[in-house]
């Protein structure tokens, strides 16, 4: 009776490789790079589930494959192999990477929202903040301009962007404001799954607090599942229910967030946690 829902997202054995690979690859890896052919195995056989309303944290050093994983899920990169199922796409019975181009657009615009570490990737810097949101709503099939303006206003208010600046392009905004416009754009179509890639990195502490509070509210209010990549363990501790630790394209440890931070098992996780200042 409890806990019998299907996962919102289920990733199975994802591999993303840069290079052709060779027969010696898996035995000749130096970190994630093959010494024989030079192929980089950015994500090397990763599986995990994210449940409805859950925040799954992903930590790991730079180059461990976190962003590649996120961007593969958002169809920015084409995976080498593996499959991923979304509860909202064909009842979780189909691999999203085998979906048609039109279906992938629907998944990106309706089921998922993405916030990139670099706002340039997620926003059109020359369009107004409101148009950025409208673009996402149009992509999901709506044509009602009045409704779009209302929704843009509501979303920008939720992330504390003053209504008076709705018509300004994000290139005029500070980094923290751009990040918040990105978040409101990602939320435009009430996605079931939000992908957040280092959303607080590079923000000053007070803006970071705003963004953290916003994410917590989004989770509580809308019950959205969130995949949260961060190398800031304090952010992970605040927000993630469970956490996976990545190293050289693989998951070396996963568990409850407090257990990962207080009783890390893997040598790399111990080193990471002990590096906390």
């Amino acid at each position: 009776m409890y806990l019998n829902e299907a996962p919102e997202l289920s990733v199975n054995n994802l591999v993303v490789r840069y290079g052709d690979g060779c027969s010696d690859c898996q035995e000749s890896l130096e970190k994630n790079r093959c010494k024989v052919c030079g192929t980089v195995w950015a994500v090397n056989g990763i599986s995990f589930d994210v449940y409805p309303g859950e925040v799954l944290g992903i930590v790991g050093e730079s180059g461990s494959g976190k962003t590649t994983l996120m961007r593969s899920l958002y169809f920015d990169f084409i995976p080498t192999s593996g499959n991923a199922a979304l509860r909202g796409y064909k009842g979780g019975q189909a691999n999203i990477w085998e979906a048609s181009a039109a279906e992938q657009r629907m998944i990106k615009n309706v089921i998922m929202g993405m916030v990139y570490q670099n706002p340039v990737l997620g926003l059109r810097m020359d369009y107004s903040a409101a148009s950025n949101i409208a673009e996402k709503i149009i992509a999901a099939g709506s044509r009602d301009a009045g409704q779009m303006t209302g929704r843009a206003k509501e979303l920008l208010e939720a992330v504390e962007i003053p209504t008076s600046r709705m018509v300004e392009p994000p290139k005029n905004f500070s980094g923290g404001m751009q990040q918040r416009v990105q978040i409101s754009k990602a939320l435009a179509n009430n996605p079931a799954l939000l992908l957040l890639d280092e959303v607080t990195t590079g923000l000053d502490l007070s803006v970071q607090a705003k963004v953290l509070d916003l994410i917590r509210k989004i989770k509580a209010r809308y019950g959205i599942s969130i995949l949260l990549v961060s190398h800031d363990l304090a952010v992970i501790r605040m927000l993630a229910d469970r956490t996976i630790v990545m190293l050289d394209g693989k998951i070396v440890e996963s568990g409850l967030t407090d257990q990962i931070l207080e009783d890390p098992q893997h040598a790399f996780t111990q080193q990471l946690v002990h590096s906390l200042i």
Partner: peptide
């Protein structure tokens, strides 16, 4: 399972320490 533990922490089991663990702001 981790999900069972998370459920229990939400609904049945509480933990209080002397330390404060509060979201900023």
């Amino acid at each position: 399972t981790e999900r069972e533990i998370l459920y229990l922490r939400c609904h049945e089991i509480g933990y209080v320490s002397q330390f404060l663990n509060v979201m900023p702001r």
